[in-house]
């Protein structure tokens, strides 16, 4: 291996680095939860990194995403900075949302992050509307809405998909089918093999992709993004994947079969992509180790920075409920 990376290798190792960042960020977040620096919960994206990283690799900075309770990976893949992310989930004034939102509600408009939503499937119609709004303003940006397999059983999924279709909205619905919703296996929730097949019912393409293969995800996303930019409307992508950690920090019990877990651990998307990079000569094992170390250091730095940041001032609690308005004078509201 030469130490000089070609352009293609640089782009590919960047994908690896982003996946490693997500992995390290979630491990740190779980530690910080255990140490009570994080309240509420943390829903780790561990094992699903290839989906967010592959999809966001097909996006431009001016494109938008919406996210879910399991949203840290989407944020990192979209280019959010680790320091204000960590500060947000540790409830600090320096967080992206000044400590209002926490782990499940990171919004960062300057990075095209419209918001993470703790209501399962809650952001799908907003994504359709945002996509339509962008188009109306003559922009060629698109919106990606991430959601889970569990979210596909919400009424709003069906309504949003159909509405996006009739609006030809430049939106890509990305269903992260990790095959479980907390303790409920997908077999209890749907009677079809592929959620992507539902797209036919709305009149746009549905594609199934191996969600643990970052390049396959990137390619399928790129096609959907192109289609959306051309004004041809939505696509539903179903990425088959698996979370290799329990549902969340607050719900750590895991009733999944051990051999199912080990089957998926062997298909770890980061290990797999690393192997592919080495085999194709894009990176040496040492280079990958270096990237892993870099990711870990960035995350440690972010945590240190966050924990050294001040808590929000209690007096700020009542700010931002309403946008500034003439009528917004003390005592008028309650």
């Amino acid at each position: 291996m030469t130490s000089v990376e070609t352009g293609a290798s640089v782009a590919l190792t960047q994908l690896y680095l982003t996946m490693a960042r997500i992995r390290a960020f979630e491990a740190k977040a779980m530690d910080l939860f255990a140490e009570k620096y994080i309240r509420g919960s943390v829903h780790p994206y561990t094992g699903e990194e290839a989906v967010a990283v592959g999809v966001c690799a097909a996006l431009r900075p001016e494109d938008y995403i919406t996210s879910t309770h399991r949203g840290h990976g989407h944020c990192i893949a979209k280019g959010l900075e680790l320091r204000p992310m960590m500060a947000e989930i540790t409830g600090r004034a320096t967080g992206y949302c000044r400590g209002r939102g926490g782990s499940m509600h990171i919004t960062a408009m300057r990075h095209g992050m419209l918001g993470a939503d703790a209501i399962v499937a809650g952001s799908l119609a907003m994504a359709a509307g945002a996509a339509y709004g962008l188009q109306l303003q003559g922009k060629d940006a698109v919106v990606v809405a991430f959601f889970g397999d569990g979210g596909a059983q919400q009424g709003i999924f069906h309504e949003a998909a159909n509405l996006a279709a009739v609006l030809d909205a430049p939106v890509i619905f990305v269903c992260e089918n990790n095959q479980w919703a907390i303790s409920t296996p997908i077999s209890c929730a749907i009677r079809i093999e592929n959620i992507a097949d539902r797209a036919a019912g709305y009149g746009f393409p549905g594609e199934v992709v191996d969600g643990n293969d970052v390049l396959a995800v990137r390619d399928v996303a790129a096609r959907a993004v192109e289609r959306a930019r051309r004004g041809e409307g939505p696509t539903l992508i179903e990425a088959k994947t698996y979370r290799i950690t329990p549902h969340s920090a607050a719900t750590p019990t895991d009733n999944r079969a051990p051999d199912e877990l080990s089957y998926w651990r062997e298909r770890d998307p980061i290990v797999r992509f690393g192997r592919e990079l080495v085999e194709a000569g894009h990176a040496s094992p040492e280079r990958l180790e270096e990237l892993d170390r870099q990711a870990g250091e960035e995350v440690e730095d972010a945590a240190e920075w966050a924990l050294a940041s001040p808590y929000p001032d209690a007096a700020a609690a009542e700010e931002d409920v309403y946008a500034p308005a003439d009528w917004l004078t003390p005592g008028r509201l309650a």
């Binding site: 309240r39 509420g40 409830g91 600090r92 949302c97 400590g99 209002r100 939102g101 926490g102 782990s103 509600h105 808590y311 929000p312 001032d313 209690a314 007096a315 700020a316 609690a317 009542e318 409920v321 509201l333 309650a334």
Partner: peptide, 16 residues
Amino acid sequence: AKDTPIPYATPLEREV
């Protein structure tokens, strides 16, 4: 409670 959504950070939630 104050007339706000419930915020995340400890000092804010406590305040509300």
